[in-house]
Amino acid sequence: MALKKDKKMNNKRNLVSMLDPKSTIAEHYRTIRTNIQFSSVDQEARTLMVTSAGPGEGKSTTVANLAVVFAQQGKKVLLVDADLRKPTVHYTFNKTNTFGLTSVLTKQLKLEEAVVESAERNLYVLSSGPIPPNPAELLSSMAMEVFFQNALEEYDLVLFDAPPVLAVTDAQILANKCDGAILVVSSGRTEKDKLEKAKESLEAAQSKIIGVVLNNKKIDSKSNYYHYYGTK
């Protein structure tokens, strides 16, 4: 029973925009959503990846909540777990990971067969699927190009939970394919030189960094943290 309770508490914290939409934190996610939309007025960004310099900085929580608030706006959203080494999206949404993105890329399943509905209306989830021996090769394959085409035919917005930039090359590969990238920074944890290296790596991949989310920033005794979005 304790394990189930802990799991529910973790999901409530991770999916605050869905489970506590009137909270201050949920409102901050909606502010980030608005700023993303303002940053791409001339050309709507329909494929976005969220990443960080290193692990444990909150990228997966951020992208999950962004997916929720975009879906709440009425957009048909697909959240893709593109972290093919340490996937977490299936945990966040209590889904299976026996099939997913890797199943689609290796042509074991069609996209519509691998996608599952979430508890949030308009939000669909594609877990990573079985962890492959060659994540970078899969993400840079022609199958991934086809995936983008098929996903954009079906969904208004595709959000990718990408691996940390400095850990592997996967994020750079994905960044080159997406309309924009969002970099999550953990206050008091992310080192400045690593953040700069992450930014340089994304720019080297010709990625458009549309903003930075500052995570876990303490503001006062009544608030645990907030999220700040700003352009680079």
Rank of each mutant, 00 (worst) to 15 (best):
V185A: 00
L152P: 04
Q108D: 12
G54F: 09
D6R: 13
V77C: 03
K110C: 09
K194T: 01
N122E: 06
N11M: 07
E117C: 07
T61N: 08
F38C: 12
V115G: 03
Q37K: 07
P21F: 00
S52N: 09
N97H: 04
Q73M: 15
N94S: 14
E27P: 02
A45T: 03
V116S: 11
Y226G: 15
A136F: 04
Y229P: 06
V63N: 07
V77A: 01
S23E: 00
N97D: 12
N65F: 08
N224F: 10
P130A: 11
K107I: 09
A175T: 05
T31Y: 05
E113L: 08
M1F: 05
N122V: 03
K7P: 01
A2C: 09
M49S: 02
L19F: 05
K59H: 11
E120I: 11
A26D: 01
L105K: 06
I25K: 02
G188W: 11
A45W: 03
L174Q: 05
G180D: 01
L123C: 08
F147S: 07
D179H: 14
G129M: 12
T88A: 12
S140V: 07
V104A: 13
T92S: 07
S118R: 10
I209R: 08
T92V: 11
G230Q: 04
Y29K: 00
A204S: 13
V89F: 00
I32W: 05
G129W: 11
A181I: 09
A114E: 05
G180F: 00
Q149D: 14
I131R: 13
L183Q: 02
D83Y: 04
E120R: 12
D83I: 09
E154N: 11
S40C: 15
V80Y: 03
A71F: 07
V158P: 10
T169F: 01
T47A: 08
V69L: 05
E27S: 06
S118Y: 11
L138S: 10
K4I: 06
S187Y: 13
N215Q: 13
T24N: 07
G211H: 08
A67D: 06
R85M: 14
T231V: 13
L139W: 11
A71Q: 08
E154P: 00
V146Q: 13
N14I: 04
Q43M: 08
T102Q: 02
T96C: 01
V184G: 10
R30A: 02
H227S: 14
D83H: 08
L84Y: 11
M142G: 14
D20Q: 04
T62V: 15
T61V: 14
D83A: 09
L159H: 10
Q37L: 07
I25C: 00
R33P: 02
V63A: 11
E191M: 13
I210P: 13
Q206V: 02
G54Q: 09
K208V: 12
L123Y: 12
